[in-house]
Design a binder for these strands. Sequence first.
DNA 1: CCTCCTTGTGGAATCGATTACACGAAGGAT
DNA 2: ATCCTTCGTGTAATCGATTCCACAAGGAGG
Lengths: 344, 344
Amino acid sequence: MASIKDVAAAAGVSVATVSRALNGHPSVSAAARARVLAAVEELGYRPNAVARSLRTDTTRTLGLVISDVMNPYFTELARSVEEEARALGYSVIIGNADERPDLQDHHVTTLLDRRIDGLLVSPTDGGSPRMLEAARAGTPMVFVDRWIPGVDVPVVRSDGRAAVRDLVAHLHGLGHRRLAIIAGPAATTTGRERVDAFREALAAFGLELPAAYIGQGDFQAASGRRVTEGFLDLPEPPEVVFAADNLMALGALDAVRARGLRVPRDLALAAFDDIPWFVHTDPPVTAVAQPTGELGRAAVRALVDRIEGRTAESVTLPARLVVRRSCGEPETPQSPSPVRRSTT
Amino acid sequence: MASIKDVAAAAGVSVATVSRALNGHPSVSAAARARVLAAVEELGYRPNAVARSLRTDTTRTLGLVISDVMNPYFTELARSVEEEARALGYSVIIGNADERPDLQDHHVTTLLDRRIDGLLVSPTDGGSPRMLEAARAGTPMVFVDRWIPGVDVPVVRSDGRAAVRDLVAHLHGLGHRRLAIIAGPAATTTGRERVDAFREALAAFGLELPAAYIGQGDFQAASGRRVTEGFLDLPEPPEVVFAADNLMALGALDAVRARGLRVPRDLALAAFDDIPWFVHTDPPVTAVAQPTGELGRAAVRALVDRIEGRTAESVTLPARLVVRRSCGEPETPQSPSPVRRSTT
DNA sequence: CCTCCTTGTGGAATCGATTACACGAAGGAT
DNA sequence: ATCCTTCGTGTAATCGATTCCACAAGGAGG
């Protein structure tokens, strides 16, 4: 592969001139610039990004460590992150932690070894030592979706409390009183917050959230299935299950179907994180929708701000409720609900 | 960030000894090795992958350019690719082309600029000049899922012809005679092959595939919706629509639903590429399932074989039909079908 | 006509690793 | 005692870019 030396030789100039011509440095004569460009064209020369990074101590690359790529929510997040980064002239390297702290650590390590300019993380757990150390050492970093309390890193996330209140109001209005939740791992902020928001919203209606109605999941489909089976085996099963992410909702559907039961007749279902498939499931699933794309873009902007020496702000965007049919038949048209009804 | 020089100074040895100690070179005394390791530990030293890559002309990184990350099929492919690569000691950088040739070209270019060791591509079109040039120049490369005819690059893909024959047999057995297809872009092999396979299978049953029953899609949901609407507007609409990927099937469901019609009563639906959500859609969707994970792993093994100087083989794995309810009510138990029925 | 800038250019240092080569010390063979 | 390996180590070249510094040529100003 042609190097800058080959170009210099072909153009009859020094490597310094080639570099200057290619980087838009002002003091290069028009004649030299033309000869360099011609040589570049002829040789098909492309600068070696590895060499450039070594010299400039800059890779124009962002690392993104997400909890689980197979979760459509994170897939969309990753997509919007890459889009915004590309618009700002950065590449993105994605590391998929698969909800495993050891894998998360592996990816953080390899990303840092590659000297990425900044790190976007949706932590799977309390944070690997290497990550915390990097944050303390000043590696530009931004948390997205999930975060780690006590670490001085900007957080870009959405606040689902209002939407969860809307959800509980909706459920209460449909006559449901025994509401259960499939929680995410307690080690994650989203795992804890969604339970808290649910409990608070229930309290506002004078309802409790008994321990038996809190199932411990891990944001994966299998755990949603297992927890739902447990709920159905209770002496007094819940009337509604609220899954803290879309994969656990899929697992819950599996469990209900395996028993030959129907949603919402035998068990109502709602989920955190809306996805296109929820429109076409049987029945369509009521969900709390995050502004995923906006979250990803805001996170990249915050990170690039930090990288380029500006100050980065934390961002919190509201989630909203999307009502479908999985919690019960819609209210009659005579008494329109205050809650937006999805038409898609 | 500590460099090898800092470690050398702290350990009281030369940088050469540090490098040798860290890379398991045999001729390093136990004493020196211990001092180096202690210094590494104390300084929290990690080798700079950029510098190492420049020197060794090796990045231990694979590039993966896929057509569309938001398509669950490709998400799963990406995941299995990363897994297998990690097992073999490689990292993966994913580039999402979003079915756009210009984006595909962008990603191929930046990946080559980074001097990745090998490239895994699922081409969106006939192939960007840069990619073809790289293939000719000897960059290790493997096509996965889709490929470009006439380019001497191993291909790892699945053959859906048998499964499509099974599908048509299933449809014919249910009494359907007017079968339509939502095709993928003609610029992709999978776009063309799936139409060909469908047409061949129809011919075996004495059925034709009229031009009006071939809708031109682009593997995205919106096109599936548009094409399906066109089918429904025909004087004689088809009885079955076969979507050449899962996103276009989603769009088809959208279109049917928007008209207030039902699947399969008013229109039967089948799709290429099975995904977990198809179990829970209304109705569950009959699909041709590719061995996606195995495809990704085989592709990585083939690419690494090429990179490490061995010869890489093309691989073709069979797809299989998964029958669900979207094409009509199941056959009666008295006359068991030769085709496997999904229980999940 | 002699300075003093400005402009364009090249030489060489540099980034952080790996590795060829040289060399001194130690040990074994003769 | 001498020579030859072998072992462990250090010096320095190298990868491909960027960039500081020096310098030559040419024009402007005195």
